[in-house]
Write a protein that binds this DNA or RNA. Structure first.
Length: 369
DNA sequence: AATGCGTGGGG
DNA sequence: TCCCCAAGCAT
């Protein structure tokens, strides 16, 4: 008995076993699909499920998103990571409204010209919404295809990735474009549910019959492991000032780099730089109260976050710290904040409210500068 | 073309 | 705990 085509096995398996209840699968509205694809870049489904409904409720269509202030967009994105996605999302919405009359382009080539939409995301949207026979090539497909084809070339080389893109494109069901949504979804589902990085469930895979990696008996050997990157270390000194009314000093971070565009405690590369700012800005004296540092692990970086606080803060806006301002909890809650900063501020606000509720209880002693 | 960009799930 | 890596893209 001969095997059905690669594509038809993917499509039939998706129909039987694939995922169908995810919120962004309930409509072929390009806006909803686009939003989900951007959120899902390098981000697991379980995580996106906590953000997508809230975001969509606030921004139900591309116009509402385009008109929104960027800080509100970043606020709803806060915690999802890779914040350049949120800034590109916002710009993309504005381009779609201003240039395309509020309707997304209907082919992958045009979609790819928009901010934040690369080749794979363009193909996902075009195949889901417009049945265009173009292949995605995300982490799932990369793993599934390298295994199925026995593709052992080094994927850190662009030419090998190009070759894999070509192989992926030759497998799409161009005779049945109406099955493209299910085909694309099936590739993603197989990668996420069957062809997993560790201990793939080959016995349940509709593609095992002609899978080179399965035949080899060691499917986990593909794709070729990227060499472990030595993680660098960086230290950020954070100026943490709270006014008596509970407002916290925050500063918008530059658009480029880590936490770009988010609000954050004013950050410095050294304790000297932080103290200099505190002394010149407020006439604060002494060393400040150095809190216990926290290591924030990113994929390629160990960030040691080291807050320094002063208890007595003169009133007034800091003119010398560009863009820095005071935010009450009700205000900063809605801003985009780095995840560890939000945790810190929340803990502080919580203990503060306990203090206020029990004014006669023992309060922490004021630090001596 | 190599690198930077977040956070958290899961083994 | 530690490590891998996720519906990638921009520069």
């Amino acid at each position: 008995m001969t095997l059905a085509s690669f594509a038809s096995r993917v499509v039939e398996w998706q129909q039987r076993e694939g995922r169908s209840g995810l919120p962004w699968q309930q409509s072929a509205d390009p806006y909803r699909v686009w939003l989900s694809e951007i959120m899902l870049q390098q981000t697991q489904v379980a995580t996106v499920l906590r953000y997508y409904p809230r975001f969509l409720a606030r921004f139900p269509d591309v116009q509402s998103l385009a008109e929104a202030p960027i800080d509100e967009v970043l606020g709803l994105w806060s915690g999802l990571g890779y914040y350049s996605r949120a800034r590109s999302l916002h710009r993309c919405a504005q381009v779609v409204c201003a240039v395309h009359g509020g309707r997304f382009p209907t082919c992958a080539a045009e979609l790819e010209r928009l901010p934040g939409i690369g080749r794979s995301t363009a193909a996902a949207i075009a195949s889901f919404c417009f049945h265009e026979p173009v292949s995605i090539l995300d982490g799932n497909v990369r793993r599934l295809l390298t295994r199925h084809l026995g593709f052992d070339a080094d994927l850190s080389k662009a030419r090998n990735v190009d070759a894999l893109w070509q192989r992926a494109q030759t497998l799409v069901p161009i005779e049945e474009p109406t099955s493209m949504p299910r085909y694309t979804q099936g590739l993603m589902d197989l990668g996420a549910m069957i062809c997993t990085p560790r201990r793939p469930r080959c016995a349940a895979c509709p593609l095992a019959g002609d899978c080179r990696a399965y035949a080899s008996g060691e499917p986990e050997r593909l794709p070729m492991r990227r060499l472990a990157l030595a993680r660098q270390s960086r230290q950020l000194w954070l100026l943490w000032l709270e006014r008596p009314d509970g407002a916290t000093l925050l500063q918008r971070r530059p658009a480029r780099g880590i936490w770009g565009g988010l609000h954050c405690l004013p950050a410095f590369d050294s304790l000297d730089a932080l103290r200099d700012a505190a002394h010149r800005g407020w006439g604060l004296t002494g060393a400040g109260q150095t809190e216990s540092p926290r290591v924030h692990r990113l994929t390629h970086l160990d960030l040691t976050l080291q807050p320094v606080r002063w208890c007595l803060v003169p009133p007034g806006a800091p003119q010398f710290l560009d863009g820095a301002d005071w935010y009450l909890p009700a205000q900063w809650e809605r801003l985009g904040l780095p995840a560890p900063i939000r945790v810190w501020l929340q803990d502080s606000a919580r203990s503060r409210s306990v203090d206020l509720a029990m004014p006669h209880e023992r309060r922490p002693a004021a630090a001596i500068p």
